[in-house]
Simulated assay, not measured.
Amino acid sequence: MPSAAAAIAPVLLLVASNVFMTFAWYGHLRVEHRPIWLIIVVSWAIAFFEYCLAVPANRIGRTVYSAAELKTMQEVITLTVFTVFSVTYLGERLTWNHAIGFALIAAGALFVFKGPF
């Protein structure tokens, strides 16, 4: 039986990796006065740390979760991190369309983990 740490560590590592990746992909949207080549280089440097967390997360997580469960977990975490990021860092507001869309994705995740089939 896998340990509790093997079940929780991937979640924590994926959350941390998603923070890095969200900044790599979207953090530059507030930095419009820099050349695109510099934005790309900085984004790749940030993404390096994302990979340093995501790869072990999936390696450790594979002892507890299927690949489909890991990918589903990743997507739900990505949406959660992105939602917090877009509201707090980018100053965007969430709409009912966002909430409904995210809820449908969460419902899909529920089927992957606990589906009736």
Rank of each mutant, 00 (worst) to 15 (best):
L13P: 01
A109P: 01
P116D: 07
I39E: 08
V64T: 12
I8L: 14
G108A: 09
M1W: 01
Y26L: 07
L79E: 06
W44N: 15
I36F: 14
R93F: 14
L110E: 02
N58K: 03
V42W: 07
T63G: 10
M1F: 02
F113V: 01
F49P: 01
A103I: 05
T72Q: 10
G115D: 02
L90Q: 11
V19A: 05
L53N: 06
V87T: 14
P116R: 10
G101E: 13
L104A: 14
L79K: 06
A47Y: 12
E32V: 08
F20C: 07
M73I: 06
W37M: 09
L14Y: 00
H98N: 15
G91N: 11
L110R: 05
V11K: 03
M73F: 08
E69N: 09
T95M: 10
L53G: 05
P10V: 01
S3Y: 01
H28D: 02
P10L: 06
A7R: 12
L12M: 10
F117T: 04
V112S: 00
K71R: 11
H28Q: 09
H98I: 09
A107M: 09
F113M: 02
L53F: 15
T63N: 13
F113P: 01
S66T: 15
L13D: 00
H98A: 10
A57G: 11
A45N: 14
R34G: 00
F111R: 05
T22V: 13
P116F: 04
P2D: 02
L90A: 13
A109T: 02
L104Y: 06
R30T: 07
G108W: 04
A99N: 06
R93C: 09
F23E: 04
T63V: 14
